[in-house]
Every structure is written in C-alpha cells, then in structure tokens.
Amino acid sequence: MSLDVDLRHRFPGLDLSVSFRAGPGVTALFGPSGAGKSSVVNAIAGLLRPGGGRIALEETVLFDAERGVHVPASQRRIGYVFQDGRLFPHMTVAANIGYGARFAKGGLDRDEMRRVVDLLGLEALLHRRPNTLSGGEKQRVALARAWLSRPRLLLMDEPLAALDEPRKDEIFPYLERLRDVAQVPIVYVSHNLAEVARLADDLVVLQRGQVVLSGSAEAVLSDPKALPLVGVREAGAILPARVAEHGADGLSRLTLSGGELLLPGVTAPEGSTIRLRVLAQDVLISRAAPEGLSSHNVLPVDVVALHRGMGPGVAVQLRAGRDVFLARITQRAATELGLQPGMTCFAILNATAIPRGSIGGSAGLSPRKNAGVDISD
C-alpha cells in the first residue's frame, strides 16, 4: 500500500505546494508551526479540499482537482489520531475502541480487538471512562480506535504534543509496536525532531508550505543542508546498531557497520537492532587515533563533505562503514585540522548522558524499522 500526495492550496499568507510518496512504515512531516503540516494531513483525510493537485491511495484516487474527484472523509477508510485523542466522554474505553470497528468492513472482529488491546496494553482500562485516564492512556485508546477501523492509512497529527515528558515516555513503546506491526502507511506530523528520529522511516521537511528536503530519515538527518532547518542543537543523524552484549558494569556493546560503541542505559535484548540518534554537537574529530581518553567510543571515519554556514560553525559529514553522520565544529578547528573531503580521521562520540525517553523497545523490529536511542547531553 502506498500513498501519493501532490497538492496545492492557497491560504492567507501561505501558498501550500507539497508532493511526496509514503509507503509502509512511518513517513514524518516535520517543520515549524505554520509550515503547513496539519493542512496536508487534513487534505489527505478529506477534511480540507485543496485548490489543486491529486491524492491517491494505491489505485484509489481520493482527490483529483482536474477530474473533480473528492471522496468524502467518511468513505476514505483512513484512521486519524488527533493531538487530544477526541474520545467520547460518555463511553467506556471498550465502547470507544469498539466504535472504531463500526467503520471496518465486516464490523467488529473480537479476535483482532483482543490483539490490539494486548498490543497497546489496554486490558486494565477497558471499563474506565476517558475522564479517569492520563494523557498517555487516552492516546493509546485513540490509537486502538483508529486501528480497529481497519484503515488503509493512519494519520497522526502531533499525537504527543499535549503530553509531558513522563507521558511521552509511557506511550512511545506503544507507538513503536504499532509502527512495527502495521502494514499500512503511517503519516506522522511533528515539530519535535526527537520524536521523528525515533519513529520515522522517511522524512519530509516542510518550510513555509514547501518541501525543502525529503528521503529516508537516515539520509535527511545526515545531510548538512538539514542543519539550518532543524537547528544546530538538534542536528544529528541516525545510526542503526546491533546490541552485541550487556556488560556487568552497565555498559552495552553495540556493533555498527563501521565499528563498535559502548553505551549505558540500553535495555533492548542482546541480538536486537536499535537505532542511535547521534547529535552533531556531540561528535569530536581527531586527525590521529586518540589516546588516553575517558571515552571508548572512537570510530575511524572518512570526511565526505564540509558545509560552511554564515556563522563560525562547520558541519562535517562523516562516513563510518555504511553509515553517514555529522559533526559540528568551528571553522577555526576545521582549518587547523586541514579537513578535506576524502580525508581519513577519527570521530569521538559522547555517550555519557541519555535524555529521558530516548531508549525505545525493539520487539518485532525489522532491519528498516528500529527502536531508538538518543546520544546527547
């Protein structure tokens, strides 16, 4: 199943012109507030009729301006999870979940409902009403309701934006589980790069209604052109890694295509695949193999490219094995090191602190859909 989007719409102060394709897995729409992200998903859902373009879900045309096609939202078989959950307050959790099945072909499948309840950890909540639930619990119920409608596509518009950090920590493993078992495209809207890095397979970056970068999340986030779009403090890359072993000292040995890392706080089982979000500001560069360091995380790398901005910083694109990531250093340091594309050097990764909620579960992960760990201060 794939979604093809090519739409144009004019708002006061914003000309929206967006094209992208989303396959199975999570395609994240990322950008600042006002970039047009929610307008895009509303157009996909049928809640907004664009001024021009075409939207198709596999062979089904949902919207075509030239042909005058605009399938009503109720007939699109699309699950939509909003920022606030939008549960029915007079219904129990079980009734809210069951309501979604009213829109599924064939009605409620109780076996499927039990599987979804188990997947999202809702068994203990079934007889409660929404006003007794936490924010994270409400969103899990909203996910179950959307999924039991047997959608051909899932839309999630900033589903974690209204949650505090503990509630985000609570719901992230369930989002990852849903991502890993769903066989339909998921379009996920966010302006939080940590969420995107943890969940997304593909990334579409919007700015002022236009697509400015798109591709796999790994490729986009390791592109120096992404720095001014995501902010220098958030800039980084995603590296897939395998959990080789958990040490008795609390450090886990991870294998990458270009070497090994030792990292604290990894709970994924040995043999599983995770993904590391490495921030550019947490990578140092050395021309020679460093000695006498407290960090054991040193990778031999090749310099791919240098991207000099208007300020004093330089984004250095590095390759270790098959993986590409970024280091952000000063222009003075780049000059003193004599960095040039093609040069071999060493990257030192800071893995002394992992922010809350940055470690994801790894159950049921495929090589392309991995869990998340965030290496940062």
Rank of each mutant, 00 (worst) to 15 (best):
L239D: 05
V304F: 07
T267V: 10
A305I: 03
P290C: 02
P224A: 03
D223Y: 08
L262Q: 14
L299H: 00
G236P: 04
P300F: 09
V204L: 03
S214K: 15
L293G: 00
A237Q: 05
L256E: 01
A219F: 00
V298K: 05
V230L: 12
R275G: 15
R198Y: 05
T255K: 07
V196I: 13
T267Q: 11
A197R: 13
L279P: 03
S216H: 01
G292H: 03
G271R: 00
G231I: 11
A280M: 05
P228I: 05
N192A: 14
Q207M: 13
L262D: 07
L221H: 08
T273S: 12
G292T: 03
A241K: 06
V303D: 12
P269N: 11
A226H: 06
L227W: 10
V278G: 09
D249F: 05
L213Q: 14
S222D: 04
S294N: 11
T267I: 04
H246V: 08
L251D: 04
L254E: 10
V303M: 12
A288P: 00
G250M: 10
V278F: 07
L251G: 06
G236M: 08
L299E: 00
T267N: 12
L276C: 09
L261G: 04
L203W: 00
A194P: 03
A268T: 10
Q281K: 15
V283G: 04
N297T: 01
E260R: 08
A268C: 12
S294A: 14
A268F: 04
L262A: 13
G265Q: 11
K225L: 13
L284H: 11
L293P: 00
A248M: 09
S252G: 11
A305Y: 02
S286F: 09
G209C: 03
P228N: 09
S222I: 04
V211W: 03
L221G: 13
D282A: 12
H307Q: 10
G292V: 03
A248L: 12
E218H: 13
R253A: 12
E234R: 09
S216W: 00
D202T: 14
I285A: 07
P300E: 07
V278E: 07
G250W: 08
L254T: 09
P224R: 01
L251M: 15
A217N: 04
H246N: 11
G236H: 05
L293S: 00
H246Y: 09
A244E: 15
R275F: 04
V205R: 07
A200D: 01
V230W: 11
L193R: 08
L293R: 01
P269K: 10
A237R: 04
P290Y: 02
